[in-house]
């Protein structure tokens, strides 16, 4: 059966993109642009792997990855919100810092590997042909990623706090004058983004390829950023985009297996090229690109007295 392994690998390749992108979506909806996803993700990956190895417990690893992402996000948030620094430059700094620090932390774990996260197994259901393992045989983070997307969709459109968060993103001056604590809301959003990026990293080093390789996120943090634009800042479209990109990533493995005679590097370049193509298509439709863009995205907020 050729369909099942392809579906399985697509899910595995899509999950980290989806986790990282849904976190960034919340951050951007609050009006903050965090370009440091790659840095938070790689720190999540290395900390998750290090803790999982030392405690021999995957769950602790996942928690550590999430906390590492949040710690990185806290640095970013303090600078960008507390000191109103340039968000683009601060995000870049976060990525450089994360790539370096993860290399230092991970040095002693190079070459070690784990057995992956436990998979959900429902006797009977998991044995169904094709869809059995695809739907009922994934590890917890895959289900969690969908729960987070559903949760974010509910939060943003159905709760008062979600409305406040979107208000901060669209007009921080008005949000401030109604009495919303703009900076606090944004800081919490940034922390949530860090937790999601950390989870995405943990999934990379504990499930996707259960080992630590330097710079193993390989630009996925940046692709996640593009996914948010692709999704026009709408939660369910992030899920759609992540699976589309996951499928493209997977093409490279199967393309090689099918022996199409295309150089491996061309297949590896596909997700990056697809990102560019998608950005161009989305951005050139002005009306659609503008409709949901948070109006205060990337603009610092300093309360006037």
């Amino acid at each position: 059966m050729w369909l099942e392994p392809i579906l399985m690998t697509i899910i595995v390749a899509s999950t980290p993109l989806m986790l990282a992108a849904i976190g960034e979506l919340v951050v951007e909806r609050s009006g903050v642009l965090n370009l440091g996803i790659e840095g938070m993700m790689i720190m999540g990956a290395v900390c998750a792997f290090a803790v999982a190895m030392t405690t021999d417990n995957g769950f602790f690893g996942v928690v550590a990855g999430m906390l590492a992402g949040m710690a990185m996000a806290a640095i970013f948030g303090s600078l960008v919100l507390g000191l109103a620094t340039n968000q683009v430059a601060t995000g870049l700094a976060l990525t450089l810092f994360g790539l370096g620090l993860s290399g230092v932390i991970g040095e002693s774990y190079v070459g070690e590997s784990r057995s992956g996260l436990p998979r959900l197994d429902i006797p009977g259901l998991s044995d169904l042909p094709v869809i059995g393992r695809v739907l009922f045989g994934q590890d917890a983070l895959v289900y969690l990623s969908f729960a987070i997307v559903a949760g974010v969709a509910f939060f943003l459109y159905r709760t008062r706090a979600g409305l406040a968060l979107r208000a901060c993103g669209d007009n921080h001056d008005s949000a401030h004058s109604i009495g919303y604590p703009v900076l606090r809301i944004r800081f919490l959003a940034v922390l949530f983004g860090g937790a999601c990026a950390g989870l995405a990293g943990a999934f990379m080093s504990l499930s996707y390829t259960p080992l630590w390789i330097k710079e193993m996120t390989a630009g996925r943090g940046w692709i996640a950023l593009a996914l948010v634009v692709f999704a026009s800042w709408m939660p369910w479209r992030v899920a759609l985009g992540a699976y589309l990109f996951g499928a493209i990533t997977i093409l490279q493995f199967h393309g090689q297996a099918w022996g199409l005679g295309i150089p491996a590097q061309v297949m590896t370049a596909l997700p990056y090229l697809a990102t560019i193509v998608v950005l161009v298509i989305i951005s050139s439709e002005r009306a659609r690109a503008r409709a949901n863009t948070p109006l205060c995205l990337g603009k610092p907020f300093v309360a006037e007295r």
Partner: peptide, 20 residues
């Protein structure tokens, strides 16, 4: 490890942005 250089570079950029 060599990556310490990258850590310092990141810290330098953080500090610069904060001081700016």
């Amino acid at each position: 490890p060599l990556d310490v250089a990258m850590v310092f570079q990141g810290i330098l950029l953080f500090s610069l942005l904060a001081c700016d």
